[in-house]
Design a binder for these strands. Structure first.
Lengths: 213, 213
DNA sequence: ACCTGAACACCGTTCAAGT
DNA sequence: ACCTGAACACCGTTCAAGT
């Protein structure tokens, strides 16, 4: 089928595709080789081991996040960056668990850090303030992505069904949780993703106060 | 060696010990059996599969986090809870990647959620405000734990050495990142963990403003 | 009832061999 | 130079058998 020669790039793009539609568990050297129309061992000419593929994937995901610009309007740029990051992590939920375990940053990852620092500095943040801002922004954004990905339900329909049954057993032992679920989280219009804008606004407001005083 | 009979509890405690000193990769059914002085298949009388062991581990970790009390002083209770969570996650870094992938909460997990909601409600938070607060607090706390665990270095000594060499290659391509690292992150007294209190304070201040107005 | 040996269908990776 | 078959040391889990 695929007659173009193997390459590190082609391997990584195929790995991204496999992970996107089967999750990280489905991504094995063997399945990857099959998807590429080669044999497992062929790939070891382009990557040292599976870890290097995972590192490459993390960098591919980072590359999809919009880079902030050093315009001086740090709030607009950080908002755009955070929203883009959440979108990208929703698109590649399998990557969330990976970002934490891989400690060898690739070029796109480094470029992303560089652009973010540049945008904050251009907005008037000192180096110490930049450190504060970066830590709290990324902790919030990344943590929110984790929460989103670990919600037990996908659609708003299944949510109610799944939870309703748990609820009955729960009401006695966990009254506050039960009340919260019934009156809020299980209501028709509820979407946890909406909490992102509140939290992001809260963090950005706090940072605004930090630099103004 | 160990003559006390096998039990779900004994299996989970052993699994926690294995994960604590070898990481999650080292925790296999086979290694666990050996640690317990039994054979792999014996454990299937107490747990359905490995996933159930992982679910149990997550609940054991949750059980270690201090429960907030419904005293009305929500800020003190949320501070205590967040600090405790970070401590616990540092003690069991392997669990961080697990919390996200396991979607069947155990009793300690549910009790934790219940107590947190109760503490916020007792502090005067409406249900909607509780949802806001819980989302942003947990996103920040959990995300910060992830950042901490993915730092490439442990001690403050190795930090400089590891990074110094990267820095040289980096300075050209990523000038802002290089400047930031040199002038801040690689300075002797720097400890990323210190950013936690800043971020937590920022989030709590924001929540305080939300409930006061 | 509780435990376990053998076996199955998988992994990532090494090593020696093909073209 | 690029690719690959066979093999090794692992996995989690099923199934049938032991006590």
């Amino acid at each position: 089928m695929s007659r173009e020669p193997l390459s590190r790039d082609r391997i990584l793009r195929a790995a991204l595709a496999v992970a996107d539609d089967g999750g990280l568990d489905r991504l094995t050297i063997r399945s990857l080789a099959q998807q590429l129309g080669t044999k497992p061992m062929s790939m070891y000419h382009y990557v040292a081991n599976k870890g290097e593929i995972l590192d490459g994937l993390v960098d591919l995901v980072f590359a999809e996040i919009e880079l902030p610009a050093a315009t001086g309007d740090w709030r607009a740029e950080m908002t755009r960056r955070a929203r883009s990051a959440i979108e990208v992590l929703r698109r590649h939920p399998w990557s969330i668990g990976l970002l934490e375990s891989r400690t060898t940053p690739g070029p796109a990852t480094l470029a992303h850090h560089d652009a973010t620092i540049a945008a904050l500095r251009a907005g008037g943040f000192s180096i110490v303030e930049t450190a504060h801002a970066y830590a709290v922004l990324d902790a919030f954004t990344y943590g929110f992505a984790v929460q989103l990905s670990s919600l037990p339900f996908e659609g708003p329909d299944s949510a109610a069904e799944v939870a309703e049954s748990i609820m009955a057993a729960m009401a006695g032992a966990y009254p506050h949780l039960a009340e919260f679920a019934e009156q809020h989280a299980l209501q028709p219009g509820y979407d946890f993703a909406d909490e992102f804008e509140f939290g992001l606004g809260l963090v950005l407001d706090g940072l605004g106060r930090m630099v103004e005083r």
